[in-house]
Design a protein around this nucleic acid. Structure first.
Length: 492
RNA sequence: CGGGAUGUAGCGUAGCCCGGUUAUCGCGCCUGGUUUGGGACCAGGAGGUCGCAAGUUCGAAUCUUGCCAUCCCGACCA
């Protein structure tokens, strides 16, 4: 009633916006291109962050924090990186306001407070970090450095979308320094695997691991590896990247180390990141026309208990039973809430929790008490059935795992059904327009051809899958020889 | 940055073309009561710089100009 959702079929973009706004994840803000992440959305991010943080620590990383501002001279040191981000940088030029003499009560930028050197608001932190690493690294004994930071960054986008692309966003960025190329490459792939494990096992979103083509590579990287996910509308979404930076930043910032033989060499680097964009991926991979569907492992709330009572006399009875179940579930480490708010009636609560994607709902009324059962509803399948109160907590714990698996399987089938091979140009264009999804096709390996295909179809090469099998073929555009298929898609 | 659309209470809206008392309705909110197994009902009540700023006019939500914001579609990007 009060919260009508646009259906996916009607308007996919609007459906997405409705879910974010009405599901209570985020709001628009007074700042153009920036959003407010609301408590429910932030709780989701915290769960994602905590799990990732744990995985980073398990792989030997530590957290640190570097400044928001990057002096322009440092920013421009690695030229390719600087060039790549130049068009979307916020720049601080002044450090003071003053009263505006011509408009009483208003402020103006104080022209006398111009900075000697402009400060760039970080779009990413390689520059400031590698400038710091120079001071930290002298010998191979100082290596490796395995640092991660949780931070906000700013990229001044022309067109923004909640979670998917905002001017400011939250992310983590890992920045590592190594003595050898092999070790850096190993690190790059290790973190790619951490990402794919996290996204698949916790977010229940299947991904394809691959390597980016030169056109799509991170500015300043030698190689960019990525995980690519598929959304329900058939568009691809880059869910995370891990970069092998070679010695580019070490050279730009003069970071050298002495090896065991006392010979000097530049340090090898990696960087890797995922952002709040993952929340967009989560929404578009799983949710339906009734609202969000949260994977249990990172759902802010895993179970909600809704009492149904007639008159005040039955309430204490239900309360007692509900609290017992609540305690049992909490003991098992399940995130659960007893929603006995008297302002809303059961039907309203059902709809609200469905909108918010709470994986399991327990409804309990007098009738259930008499039969020693509760009504259990799962969000992913909408299935409702009575379940005995005996052993309920254990049952729910298993059910949450089953839901997690089911959501993943569903997304995986969808993804797999939407990877198609195209062997000629017309077939390629037709598949793209009629089916969407990933299209595995031959490509002659040149940036020009990739660019041309993008111009003609808006499809880009999402990646060259890591598990690709060699296969001789002809490029769909130029007909030139090709040794493997690459994955094309229209992307977010 | 280009094209299109929109902006009236927390949300959704009527009114605008054709200027004229106190700006419409629904949801939500507050108070009281009855209710509670799929978005309850009754009664009473509060809430508005009509996006902002100029202009035209005796008079502007309504007409004009400028600006701002948001959404959708492009270009750019994670």
């Amino acid at each position: 009633m009060s919260k009508e959702l646009t259906s996916r079929a009607e308007n996919y973009s609007q459906w997405y916006n409705d879910l974010v706004l009405k599901g209570g994840l985020a709001d628009y803000s007074a700042v153009k291109g920036c959003m407010v992440i609301k408590p429910y959305g932030y709780a989701l991010w915290e769960n994602m962050r905590d799990q990732l943080d744990k995985m980073f620590k398990e792989t030997g990383h530590v957290n640190a924090y570097f400044p928001l501002f990057v002096p322009k001279s440092l920013f421009e040191a690695e030229e390719k990186n600087a060039e790549g981000f130049a068009k979307e940088c916020a720049v601080v030029t002044h450090y003071r306001l003053k009263n505006d003499p011509s408009r009483p009560g208003k402020l103006m930028v104080d022209p006398d407070a111009k900075l000697e050197e402009e400060l760039i608001v970080r779009p990413t932190s390689e520059a400031i970090i590698w400038n710091t690493y120079r001071d930290w690294i002298q010998s191979y004994r100082d290596l490796p450095i395995l640092i991660n930071q949780w931070a906000n960054v700013v990229r001044w986008e022309m067109r923004t979308r909640l979670f998917l692309r905002t001017a400011e966003f939250l992310w983590q960025e890992g920045h590592t320094a190594h003595a050898t190329k092999e070790e850096a490459v190993e690190e790059t792939l290790k973190m790619l695997n951490v990402y794919s494990t996290f996204v698949e096992e916790y977010m229940a979103v299947p991904v394809i691991k691959g390597i980016k083509t030169a056109n799509e590579r991170f500015a300043g990287a030698e190689d960019t590896y990525c995980i690519e996910a598929l959304m329900q509308d058939g568009k691809a979404l880059q869910a995370g990247t891990s970069h092998f930076l070679g010695q580019n930043f070490a050279k730009a910032f003069d970071v050298k180390f002495s090896d065991k033989n006392n010979t000097l060499d530049y340090v090898w680097a990696t960087s890797w990141g995922v952002s709040t964009r993952l929340i967009g991926a989560l929404i578009m991979a799983h949710s339906d026309d009734q609202g969000l569907i949260m994977p249990p492992k990172i759902a802010p709330l895993q179970v909600v208990i809704v009492p149904i009572y007639k008159g005040e006399e039955s309430k204490p009875l239900i309360d007692a039973k509900a609290k017992a179940i609540l305690d049992e579930l909490k003991t098992l480490g399940i995130r659960v809430k007893y929603d006995d708010n008297d302002n809303a009636r059961p039907g309203w609560k059902f709809a609200e929790h469905e909108l918010k994607g709470v994986p399991v709902r327990i409804a309990m009324g007098l009738r259930d008490m008499e039969n020693n059962v509760v009504e259990l509803a799962r969000r992913d399948t909408k299935e409702k059935k009575p379940v005995s109160m005996d052993g309920l907590a254990g049952y729910i714990k298993e059910l949450l795992e089953e839901i997690q698996q089911n959501i993943y399987n569903r997304a995986l089938s969808f993804r797999n059904e939407n990877i198609r091979e195209a062997n000629g140009w017309e077939e390629f264009v037709q598949l793209l327009d009629e089916k969407g999804g990933f299209i595995a096709a031959h490509w002659d390996g040149t940036p020009d051809t990739e660019e041309k295909i993008k111009e003609l179809t808006k499809a880009t090469i999402r990646c060259i899958p890591l598990d690709n099998k060699p296969e001789d073929g002809k490029c769909i555009l130029t007909g030139k020889n090709s040794t493997q298929r690459v994955l094309f898609a229209r992307a977010y």
